[in-house]
Design a protein around this nucleic acid. Structure first.
Lengths: 115, 115
DNA sequence: GAATTATTTAACCGATTAGTTAATTGTAGT
DNA sequence: ACTACAATTAACTAATCGGTTAAATAATTC
């Protein structure tokens, strides 16, 4: 499981990490700030950050003793591209459901006493 | 990690499982057929299918001794929605990169002998 | 240079994962 | 009923994951 997409999906498969990304979407911030909303130790957050960094979703710079984190969205584009390939399927299914419901209505509207 | 999105991302974080989905995108097929391209045992594929089923990405019906599998794309829509929220970030970054490159060009074009 | 603050690394733990082989179930055909 | 085929379940293993606490590193300030 070394391919980029797997690494990215794997990084996203954790609510804490997605929450971190959501926070970073509002702007750069420190590890402390990132950790604050979570009920877990700082090292745990550092670990999550490492996972996100390995997936290329986060980068860290230096400012004095802080290491401000920043969102890197490029890998998300890859995810969007991948999932986009399947768009027609969920849309298609909705279309079919619509078709079916229309059919049903067409059949049943004329004599509504039928069960 | 019980939320739907985590389960879905986790299911997608494996190239074999994504390959299975890609195959199913071409139409319903049996477990044997699905397993055929992979260098792993049938039980391993069954396990992957279980993961995909738990994520709601695949359903199985019955036809004699076969259990044809079918793609269910609804959870992918959720993924698309989630990742869509970040679209502006990768687009924004590209814009900024473009800006930067334009700036650079504007600065450097006039006297190209500068290093 | 000693103390403080932010962050990471190390070492550990229990749970989960991805695979294996062997045994089991379910259905069809004879 | 017996055989064959499709698929699953069971039992096991090695590796990875998500968390912990304690120790180490880095930069700042006095």
């Amino acid at each position: 499981m070394t391919d980029q997409l797997s690494v990215t999906f794997s990084a996203l498969a954790d609510p804490t990490r997605r929450a971190i990304l959501a926070r970073l979407a509002k702007g750069e911030t420190t590890v402390m700030q990132l950790a604050q909303p979570f009920e877990m130790s700082l090292p745990a957050v550092t670990k999550h950050l490492k996972v996100l960094q390995k997936a290329g979703l986060v980068t860290q710079s230096r400012q004095a003793q802080w290491r401000p984190c920043r969102l890197e969205a490029k890998p998300l584009r890859q995810v969007a591209d991948w999932v986009g390939e399947y768009r027609r399927f969920w849309e298609e299914r909705l279309d079919r459901l619509e078709e079916y419901l229309n059919e049903l209505q067409a059949k049943e509207k004329p004599d509504e006493q039928a069960e």
